[in-house]
Each structure stands twice: as C-alpha cells, then as structure tokens.
Amino acid sequence: MIRRAAPLLSVFALLLVVWYVAAVWLNLDLARTLADDDATPRQIWLATLAQDRPLLPAPHQIIVEMWTSIFDHPVTSAKSLVLHAAVTAYAAALGLAIALVLGIVLAVGIVHVRTLDRSLMLWIIASQTVPILAIAPMVVVVLGNAGLTGVLPKALIAGYLSFFPIATGMVKGLRSPDPMQRDLMRTYSASGVQVFARLRWPASMAFLFPALKVAATLALVGAIVAELPTGAQAGLGARLLSGSYYGQTLQIWAALFMASLLALLAVALVDLLQLGLVRQRGGRL
C-alpha cells in the first residue's frame, strides 16, 4: 500500500508545488497592476494567490470556490455547482443508457446477421476516426427548431458519442469465444440462443466493461459540449461558457474540476459493477 502510495503522493506534491510557482509567476503582472503604489513585494507575492480573476488560480482558491458553490447555495440555485453537475450528469447518464441499449442490440445484430455485419461494420469503424463532436451544435439547434429542447438533445449527443465504443466493444466481445469453445457448443447441438446466452454473452463482458468506461467519459464530454451552442442556462458546459465570457477563471476551474470528478465517479461506478461480476466469477472477468 505504502509502496504504491508513496510515488503517487510525491508526484502529486510536486504537481502542487509547480502549480503554486506557476500561479505566482502567471499572476504577477496582474497583482502588480492591481496593487497599491506602496505595496511591499511580499504583499504583491501574496496577492498573486488571491486574485478574483487570476490567470491561473491557486489550488486552494479552486477548492474554496468549489466548496462555496457546492455548500453555500441551495441545490436549486443557479449558483450551485451541484445543480450544474446534476444537469450534465443526468443528460450524460440518459445518453449512456440509450447508447448501451442501441449499441448492444446492434452488436447482437451484427454478430448474427451477415448482411448487417457487411453493411455496417465499416461505417462504425470509420466513424471512430471522424470528429463526431463537431455535429453537436447542429444537432442541438436542429432539434430545438423541431421543438425538442431540454435534456433530450444533450442526451442524444452524449448517446451518439458513447454508442460507438459500446457497439465495437460488444461486437468484439461477442466474437471473442475461440473456435474450440464454439465447437464444444456444436457438439452439444446447442441452439443459437443457447450459444448466445451461455457462451457469447458471458464472454463479451470482458469487453463490455472497458468499453463502458470509455463510453461514460465520452457521454460526459458530449453532454458538456452540447451545452455550449444554445447558451444553456444550466450545466457544466454552460458554466464553462459563461465563465469564459465574463473572465471568471475561478468558475471555469471549478466547473472543470467538477467535470473531472464526475468522470472519475462514472469510471468508479463501472469499476464497481465490474467488481461485482468479477467476484461472481472467482476473480477474473
């Protein structure tokens, strides 16, 4: 435990030091211009770490900002970071759920129906090389024109992004049983459904979970970016954008940290689900 924690903590400490040095260095000009004429160098140094709109906020400023925006406002207030995080997380989760269902259904189809495999697989693979996120603003606006607003357009974008890793992962996973394992099922003259339920599906889990982690992160990115074009009122993307407009660096950093926390939480949740399955399977996926 200590062997593992020591390097991590050292690197973390080093990062903090670098961050503080960088904050002082980057904010020095700002602190100088804002300081009183008779300010001592020491006062100016300290001021670099206490600016309202610093070029680079010090870590403790971000933590304080996060603390106040989480705990000092009611959850329903527009100033509450919890509200914004929840709005984004809701869209991402909804999108992920859509992607999970569609991705698995399509993967099952591709594995079992040759026509689907031949028609779709190339496009699914090719789409991973394309910056799909670029269509996010258009989807939001077009759906808005068609009368669809609120969480659904965001969820659709989040789902669209996370759909591809799930579909490709599941196709790989459902195809992962080796010929010997499949031949075994043949010797039992097992039906297609039996082969699926007893071989392909269990085997695909080792591929589903890694895909799910990637997909969860992408869903979050999708939801955040989907909040940019419409000038959404709530959500982490909206916080980033308004912070960017008004030069509220602390707000940007707090939103960014919150987004990272959400991503970590999502990955941890998938890990937890995976752990449950791993336990059931005697320690291996």
Binding site: L55, L133, K213, T217, L220, V221, I224, V225, L236, L240, L241, G243, S244, G247, T249, I252, W253, A255, L256, A259, S260, A263, L264, V267
Partner: peptide, 13 residues
C-alpha cells in the same frame, strides 16, 4: 478519463 476539451476557455485566456 477527464473531459480535457473543457480547458479550452482557459487556454483562450
């Protein structure tokens, strides 16, 4: 695992 694109406004600054 983080939504790194979010640093865009900071980089603009």
């Amino acid at each position: 695992a983080m939504p790194v694109v979010g640093i865009a406004p900071i980089m603009v600054m």
